[in-house]
Design a binder for these strands. Structure first.
Length: 466
DNA sequence: TGGGGTTAT
DNA sequence: ATAACCC
């Protein structure tokens, strides 16, 4: 129930992640606190946030769009736009109608196919991964990086009287002055230099600009990255932490407090961060449950001990389409076939094999954000043929998906859907031929990090299905 | 409100 | 399978 990205991962979750990353088994015995770095309060975390990412990708694809107000459209929405368009009043998630009204000269490109965005997104994550493997993705356009170890290394290379040579890169939140006798100040300052190097590399190698926020945890890094906005970076020194968090206008602006939680808090009369900070913990726990209550209470003080967890390869692939109406089985089948064809192509490139398939729908009757889904295992004979471009695979999967469909939708009764989505998940690396007992210890090694569409995994001699 | 993602229960 | 959360 709690936001996974901000909460402290359980030991089991971390263990699972490590296994995915191909780390050795003995690291499972290491206590959580020691996982990436030592002292949790002296970490250096950077949040890297690309400027209007989809619009940037489009401008790189077609440089003629560069000095025009540009919006990226999905269905009837302008989901993002460049700064040229923002100056003219276009906002994210604005209706195309309203955007055109505000800005008649707005140029629109269709952004419903995410392929190029996804590819560029992974290029960014890979690039950051060259600094350290501790890179966690958040959506397509944001990454957290734990810089603690890199900072430590650079710190050791410095002479103690060299410190005056260390300079800050970018802004300091609140214009707070740096104290070079304060070791955390120096660490964050080195962090700011690394962040600048990262942004420079992103620009030089990929042509992308973005913001960065440097702080002692993920929450603060994320909050501070947005302080100076396009293509700038900001470091938060510990003394200004309360100013940053109390500067928010509403608790909903705290990442980790979403729509539902914010509604609950509002019902309790809590609107501002300060109100949350000072609200009775006992009552909060009674209303929200102990886990959520304690968690958001900590967030309200800017405390966040969650680790940067390397994202590695994706856990699932999905393709979805929304529409005004779909009310017949034939129509649905057609859409499902389209989605499936796209997915098969993607899964083929990834190299791993999905063992589960899921169909999701949205009914027109469903109010705000309500989806239903049915999933089932993919039969092993289908899994085997998955990468082979075999047409039977398509047929088998469509049949499975239509069964799932009829399980959710009574096709003998009138229905009205507004979204269909097909998802492949439970992805497993290809298994070696069963045999030697050593295989049990060596099996999942998906530790390489090229996700950009090529076959990045090691294609050794004999891989076989289980 | 799109077209994606994640984890917890 | 659903319900939160993130972009």
């Amino acid at each position: 129930m709690r936001n996974p990205l901000w909460s402290r991962p359980t030991r089991g979750r971390l263990a699972a992640r490590r296994v995915r990353q191909g780390l050795r088994a003995f690291s499972l015995a290491v206590p959580d606190q020691a996982v990436p770095t030592g002292n949790i309060s002296s970490r250096v975390i950077v949040h890297v946030d690309l400027d209007c990412f989809y619009a940037q990708v489009e401008m790189i694809s077609n440089p003629e769009l560069k000095n025009k107000p540009l919006g990226v459209q999905q269905k009837s929405l302008v989901i993002t736009c460049n700064y040229e368009a923002r100056k003219l009043g276009v906002k994210k998630c604005m209706k195309v109608r309203d955007a055109k009204e505000k800005c008649p000269k707005l140029v629109l490109v269709n952004g419903e196919d995410l392929t190029r965005y996804r590819e560029m997104s992974y290029k960014v994550t890979e690039l950051l991964g060259e600094f350290t493997p501790l890179v966690e993705r958040l959506g397509f356009d944001e990454n957290f990086v734990d810089l603690t170890q890199i900072v430590e290394k650079r710190l050791q290379q410095l002479q103690s009287d060299d410190l005056s040579a260390v300079t800050m890169s970018g802004h300091v939140y609140n214009n707070q002055s740096v104290d070079l006798h304060d070791t955390m100040h120096v660490r964050l300052l080195i962090g700011s230099q690394i962040a600048a190097e990262m942004r420079n590399t992103m620009y030089n190698q990929l042509g992308l600009t973005g913001c960065a926020g440097i702080a002692s945890n993920k929450l603060l890094a994320k909050l501070v990255s947005g302080v100076f906005k396009p293509n700038q970076q900001t470091v938060l020194l510990p003394e200004s932490c309360q100013d940053l968090i109390l500067g928010l206008n509403h608790v909903k602006e705290i990442p980790g407090i979403g729509y539902k939680t914010a509604k609950c808090l509002e019902a309790l009369g809590i609107h501002t961060v300060h109100e949350l900070q000072t609200f009775s913990s006992k009552i909060l726990e009674e209303e929200l449950g102990i886990s959520l209550a304690q968690h958001i209470k900590k967030l309200s003080f800017g405390e966040d001990n969650s680790s940067v967890i390397p994202s590695g390869q994706p856990q699932s692939f999905s393709e979805e389409e929304s529409f005004k109406k779909c009310s017949s089985e034939v129509e649905a089948k057609k859409k499902i076939e389209e989605l499936l064809a796209l997915l098969l192509h993607r899964v083929c490139q990834d190299g791993r094999k999905p063992h589960t398939v899921r169909l999701s729908i949205r009914r027109s009757s469903s109010k705000y954000y309500n989806r239903e889904s049915r999933q089932c295992p993919i039969p092993s004979h289908v899994i085997q043929k998955l990468g082979t471009g075999n047409c039977d695979v398509m047929t088998s999967l469509v049949n499975i998906l239509m069964k799932l469909f009829r399980n959710m939708v009574n096709v003998k009764m009138p229905f009205h859907l507004t979204l269909l989505s097909v998802c492949f998940c439970n992805l497993k690396a290809l298994n070696r031929a069963k045999k030697g007992p050593m295989d049990y210890y060596l099996t999942p090694s998906s530790s390489t990090t090229s996700h950009s569409g090529k076959h990045s995994f090691k294609m050794k001699d004999t891989y076989v299905e289980d």
